[in-house]
Write a protein that binds this DNA or RNA. Structure first.
Length: 569
DNA sequence: TTTTTTTGCGCC
DNA sequence: AAACGGCGCAAAAAAA
């Protein structure tokens, strides 16, 4: 049914979907919005939808109609998108700035059940509505022959509005649970502000030193070639590694993969390296160097150049629905996994590939032991709280109490925070089952409340099917799955993400984007480019100021360390 | 041949 | 009794 635009105002919610020429709306000068679909149901429940072609090469709506649509979207009190972060940028590029509220079915699906297999429109449509996107052989062949950007407007009309229809119906489907779980108010308002901030960070992007990347690719390729020659087989091929190390050299299988095949990961290789060293055979070392270079060149240096926008900036995609715990994830490229500075020649200098804009300096701000501090508060674990407040380093403190090496204590703490059991401790430290059990008990003798709280969270998730973060956002658990042991970790990992998010917004409200821009968010670290040294103490102070967030957060401090980004910590 | 799974590895 | 949490990416191997 063709929509009368006047009717659209009578609907509380209006689904909006944009079609584009597939270029990146965040920066590409050639980007175009081809058209806009809207969908809603009228008073009789009849679906009304329409596609308005705007920038097709053949036929478009009249100026008057397009202006009506622009006005509708600008003034309608409630829009619904599927992946609003994208559509809002598209609308912004067209000079359309919605003034009403909006919802996002992708994020609704994620918040209601973060465990869903997919949050794509097509998948959700099939799962919740029994119908997916309108893909037909006819549409496929038209896209193939014309290319996406050149599909005729009249043809697009037949298909494009189904996405908006799906979005509208999904929204209605999700609405009850969305409201019941308490997301409709302040929590979603904050997320909208956060979405805008992330979008702004993405549009800003980060400057890449392309000469440095090219130079490193060159060194890497030459080095790999030499190593390949020395080794004599493909170091990335496990069967070939097995042939050499096990069959030819007669070395033992030191580790197996989950499918039972011999494993040659870097830990296993370290053992082979030790044995071969005595025989003056550098093969293991060469294999590690080869794989190190290959990983870095393909996943970092070359990926950065391939994904670089033509204005010299790299713009990753931060996903607000990327993790079950509520953290962000980051793609294309993943700038949350930039190798840290080290003396490895293949990746130890990677941060040098990132530059501030001309006149700006990159600054990183890190929370120290963020999750452990939250764990201490949640568990009311006085031993840990007191240690933090006395200024002790938590792992030194534990090392003293257990009379064990600091590094063991650190690994042990994180293993347990992550829900690890006796088996995990056994494998981690190469202990037998009994020793692992005792070590775990020793740990919990120091932190008894932690043990109780981990158990409590686990029981709660099993009984209720979810646990709540301090913001009242929920982390759901299917009672049929055996992952209740993740509950406590979710509370502190998700809680940490929510804490950072809140402070990130607070910082964003204070800084002046002309002289200070937020660039990256890496879980417990924020990266800025700043043209004025005055921002460093300001940012630090805002990040550390968490007392207003929750009545329990005053129990320990949340210190933040700042450093010039890229320089070794 | 193309698609999916496995493996390894970078980060917090 | 047993369970280490959360990601994304690329190359090789296996499956289709």
């Amino acid at each position: 049914m063709i929509a009368n635009l006047q009717d659209a105002y009578k609907s509380r919610w209006l689904a909006v979907d944009t079609e584009t020429n597939a270029l990146d709306p965040r920066w590409d000068p050639q980007f175009k919005c081809l058209g806009i679909s809207i969908a809603f149901r009228n008073e009789l429940g009849v679906m009304c939808s329409e596609y308005y072609p705007i920038n097709h090469w053949d036929s478009n709506e009249t100026e008057d109609t397009i202006n009506e649509v622009r006005w509708l979207i600008t003034t309608h009190p409630g829009l619904v998108f599927h992946n609003a972060k994208f559509d809002l940028v598209v609308l912004d590029r067209m000079g359309i700035k919605p003034t009403g509220d909006y919802l996002d079915t992708m994020l609704m699906a994620h918040w209601i059940d973060e465990n869903l297999f997919s949050k794509e429109l097509d998948w959700l449509g099939k799962r919740f509505l029994g119908r997916g996107k309108a893909m037909t052989p006819e549409l496929d062949s038209v896209i193939n022959s014309f290319g996406w950007g050149l599909v005729p407007g009249a043809f697009m009309k037949k298909y494009a509005s189904t996405d908006a229809e799906l979005t509208f119906d999904l929204c209605m489907k999700f609405m009850k649970k969305w409201n019941d779980e308490g997301y409709a108010g302040a929590l979603w308002a904050r997320e909208q502000e956060f979405l805008a901030l992330i979008s702004r960070m993405e549009r800003q992007g980060i400057v890449i030193d392309t000469d440095f990347c090219k130079e490193q690719i060159d060194i890497g390729e030459r080095t790999m070639q030499e190593l390949l020659f020395k080794v004599g087989f493909n170091p990335s091929s496990n069967p070939q590694l097995g042939e050499y190390l096990i069959n030819q050299m007669g070395l033992p299988v030191v580790k197996n993969t989950k499918t039972g095949r011999p494993s040659f990961d870097k830990y296993a290789m370290a053992e082979y390296e030790e044995i071969l060293e005595q025989r003056e055979d550098a093969t293991a070392q060469n294999i590690l160097a080869y794989r190190g270079w290959q990983k870095t060149v393909s996943s970092n240096y070359r990926a950065y150049l391939d994904l670089l926008c033509t204005d010299g900036r790299l713009r990753p995609n931060f996903l607000l629905h990327g993790t079950r715990t509520g953290r962000l994830s980051c793609r294309k490229p993943n700038l949350q996994q930039i190798p840290k500075s080290s003396d490895h020649p293949w990746n130890g200098g990677l941060k040098r590939a990132f530059l501030g804009s001309e006149g700006y300096r990159l600054l990183g701000f890190d929370y120290s032991n963020l999750e452990l501090r939250l764990a201490a508060i949640y568990a009311r674990e006085d031993a840990l709280i007191d240690a933090f407040n006395a200024g002790f380093k938590p792992f030194d403190e534990l090392a003293a109490r257990l009379n064990k090496p600091r590094n063991l204590c650190k690994n042990l703490t994180y293993a347990i925070l992550y829900g690890g059991g006796i088996n995990r401790i056994k494998n981690l430290f190469g202990l037998d089952w009994q020793a692992a059990k005792e070590l775990r008990e020793e740990f919990f003798r120091v932190y008894p409340n932690l043990q109780e709280t981990i158990q409590y969270a686990s029981n709660l998730s099993k009984r209720r099917g979810y646990v709540s973060l301090w913001t009242e956002r929920r982390r759901h658990f299917d009672r049929r799955d055996d992952d209740a042991h993740k509950a406590f970790n979710s509370i502190i990992q998700g809680g940490a993400a929510e804490l950072v998010k809140s402070r990130q917004l607070a910082v964003a409200r204070e800084i002046d984007w002309d002289t200070c821009r937020m660039i990256l968010s890496v879980h417990d670290e924020l990266v800025f480019e700043s043209a004025d040294p005055k921002w460093e103490p300001i940012i630090k102070e805002i990040m550390m100021d968490v007392n207003g967030l929750n009545p329990n957060f005053h129990k320990v401090a949340f210190p933040v360390e700042s450093k010039i980004w890229g320089l070794a910590a």
